[in-house]
């Protein structure tokens, strides 16, 4: 008879070690920094939850910066979702369902996704310049006052257009996969039922895309809320602080001012915000489905 023991747990050990080194230990370092202050020379002083208090107090310098940046982040993510999700659905609906056009459009759509973030930033930085960039030159030529270095609105429009250009493809590809999974019989039945194009969308396509849309919204929210590289390359957070998102401010605090304690506290709160918002999104978007399942059982 084989002895009963718990030795199988050893099999989990490699995973545990990898996760510890890749995630838990670095995170703990950040937690450690967040409760201390440093003036350089690798000397640290205990500060307790001081940084967190300051961070959440809008009247303090740090808190004010943080609240402002967070506001910008939410506005940015909101605009991104409001543009990219409907646009992605629309493009997916317009894509060919068969023939050579499918491969061509898939490749074209995948292209922006394959470009590294800082290259995307550089492309748009050049594209928007009035002297050598096609868009900047054309807009200025038409008499429109467009300058993303000095104009707040121009800077925002530029980074939003850049993100839409870069990431709408992801939404399109997800939606397209969802659409392709709908059996032909649904469309045939809808034709027999005399459904209009809009009715087909409402009654068949949108409900069948439900799941992929949850994923698309989550991915695009997380990604846009953590945006750093592209605005950093294009505007550097300016003009003024107009496009300074939390991530950009975080880098300024951590590496520019070398305030490791403040930066660590900010990182943790930033992380928690993303987790919380994602959880809320996910819960809301899957709520109806769960409610339905409960009703059936």
């Amino acid at each position: 008879m084989k002895p009963y023991n718990n030795r199988a747990w050893f099999l989990v050990l490699p995973v545990f070690l990898i996760v510890a080194f890749s995630a838990i230990l670095p995170l703990m370092t950040v937690v450690n920094y967040s409760v201390q202050d440093t003036f350089g020379n690798n000397e640290f002083f205990w500060n307790g939850i001081g940084w967190f208090k300051e961070l959440l107090d809008p009247k303090s310098e740090l808190g004010g910066r943080f609240i402002d940046a967070m506001g910008r982040n939410f506005i940015f993510s909101f605009l991104i979702l409001a543009i990219e999700i409907p646009l992605g659905i629309a493009v997916a609906l317009a894509m060919p369902r068969q023939g050579i056009g499918v491969s061509i459009s898939l490749v074209l759509l995948a292209l922006p996704l394959l470009i590294p973030w800082n290259v995307v930033g550089t492309i748009w930085q050049v594209f928007g310049r009035a002297d050598i960039g096609l868009m900047g030159w054309a807009l200025t030529g038409m008499g429109i006052d467009y300058n993303y270095v000095s104009g707040v609105l121009a800077a925002w429009i530029t980074i939003i257009m850049m993100d839409v250009w870069h990431w709408t493809s992801l939404v399109v590809l997800l939606c397209y996969a969802g659409l392709r999974a709908i059996p032909d019989a649904y469309y045939q039945a809808a034709r027999i039922d005399g459904a209009s194009r809009w009715a087909i969308f409402r009654a068949i396509q949108l409900p069948k895309m439900n799941r992929v849309l949850v994923i698309a919204v989550l991915l695009r929210f997380m990604d846009s809320f953590m945006i750093y590289t592209e605005p950093f390359v294009v505007t550097g957070g300016g003009p003024g602080n107009a496009t300074t998102f939390i991530s950009i401010d975080l880098v300024k605090i951590a590496l520019g001012q070398f305030d490791l304690g403040k930066a660590a506290a900010l990182s943790l709160v930033y992380n928690l915000i993303i987790l919380t918002v994602c959880w809320v999104f996910y819960t809301i978007m899957t709520h109806f489905e769960n409610a339905e399942r409960r009703m059936q059982s």
Partner: peptide, 24 residues
């Protein structure tokens, strides 16, 4: 036409399903 696999509109009630062709 009735197809091999049942085609129903998921988000609608049975009543809405039946009313769909008339509404259209």
């Amino acid at each position: 036409q009735v197809f091999q696999f049942p085609v129903i509109y998921d988000t609608m009630t049975v009543r809405e399903n039946l009313a769909f062709p008339l509404k259209n």
